[in-house]
Write a protein that binds this DNA or RNA. Structure first.
Lengths: 205, 205
DNA sequence: CCAGCATTTTGACAGTGTCAAGATTGATTG
DNA sequence: CAATCAATCTTGACACTGTCAAAATGCTGG
């Protein structure tokens, strides 16, 4: 799961080999441990036993590095989605599974999730071309799924884009309130999502 | 609306008079203009024509100052709520107005909103006692309103807390996706909320 | 073996939050 | 009224940050 040269061996080689991957892996590990805010390029360089500015050969910016992590996050999410779609269940089950997957992914990778959908990258700091395209693809896919679920009479509404925005908004909001620590009671995010599920469905008879 | 000594006159007095208020006002103005990220205590001090560390007499921390701004935001939100509740309309209209108010407040004061519900304060950096209590009061009020709307058969569901969490989550999610610039199409947040509204209501006959 | 290139480092700079110690002032006593 | 005091503000300093320019290092093909 982890490149052998990342944390264990400094390896003392001038040419590191695959520094880019090592940096990304170490950075993910660090933000998972201490949060995005407390990630500095210098501490990252220290951890990888490399100079302060070595990362600048692979990333334009700190922002560029964070964008790369976010892109990886989207790839991971897409893979999880594809994997889940292949299981043969009823469409209703697939829909429910989609909602739960979203929640599990968000709450299990809170920092990556923040990078993927948070303000840091999308707002002021412009996001990478790569990130923009992969993110847009994910949204597109989501809208298409919604259109299909509406066409077979599972999900309510007749405007897939609008419905996707609402459902995504709901998931995103619940996820963020959890991640950011606003919901302090012991309620589980998945339970809330399961409660919200019937809202989205076409009423059964 | 603005204290006269804040930006116009440096006033050159050693004892500023009401530095705390001036700092808060200037800080709000700055984050409204350039975002939270680019607010520094030094630039703030410069703007108010005061020394770098003058703010430390009124705020423990940078975090403490941000908490104070967030608290003001909650007061503002509560006032808007109270004001809106006094207009005599049908309960259905009041509920719709509540949703729209939330959206308008969030999108018109994005930076304050971020401070109120964002990770900066609630997650790692511990939030002030004051902020915690005023925020908790707001949540409580929301749950009570939800309980009432459920009791008169307007809003679906029989678990006020759960329903409040879901509706709040939806509002929060849509608001944040807008604020953070993820929704790039020209759709207006209010329209989305109006589309989502029927989801929450008890079906008419 | 050496020239050229990719890769990494060193030095430097401006900016940040924050602490300790000193300077200034308005208010409160004797 | 004058001296003291506490509140208020400033100066100096430190560690830390991102980032640029220039130098150093090591690999690779001729």
């Amino acid at each position: 799961m982890k490149t052998s040269t990342s944390t264990s061996k400094p390896s003392a080689k001038y040419h590191h080999g695959n520094l880019r991957q090592t940096l990304l892996a170490a950075a993910k590990q660090m933000i998972a441990a201490d949060g995005i805010e407390s990630l500095s390029l210098r501490k990252l360089a220290d951890k990888v036993s490399v100079s302060r500015t070595a990362a600048y050969h692979y990333f334009d910016d700190k922002n560029d590095l964070l964008c790369a992590i976010a892109s990886d996050g989207f790839r991971q999410w897409q893979q999880l989605l594809k994997q889940s779609e292949q299981q043969n269940q009823t469409e209703r089950q697939k829909f429910e599974q989609y909602l739960i997957n979203y929640m599990v992914f968000a709450t299990h990778h809170p920092e990556e999730y923040e990078l993927m959908f948070g303000r840091c990258i999308w707002k002021q700091a412009q996001c990478t071309e790569e990130l923009q395209t992969i993110a847009h693809g994910t949204f597109q896919h989501q809208v298409e799924m919604m259109a299909y679920w509406q066409s077979i009479g599972l999900v309510a509404g007749d405007n897939p884009l609008r419905t996707a925005q609402i459902i995504w908004g709901t998931l995103h909001g619940i996820a963020k309130l959890f991640i950011d620590g606003v919901y302090v009671d012991d309620t589980r995010a998945e339970e809330i999502v399961k409660s919200a599920l019937p809202m989205f469905l076409v009423p059964k008879d």
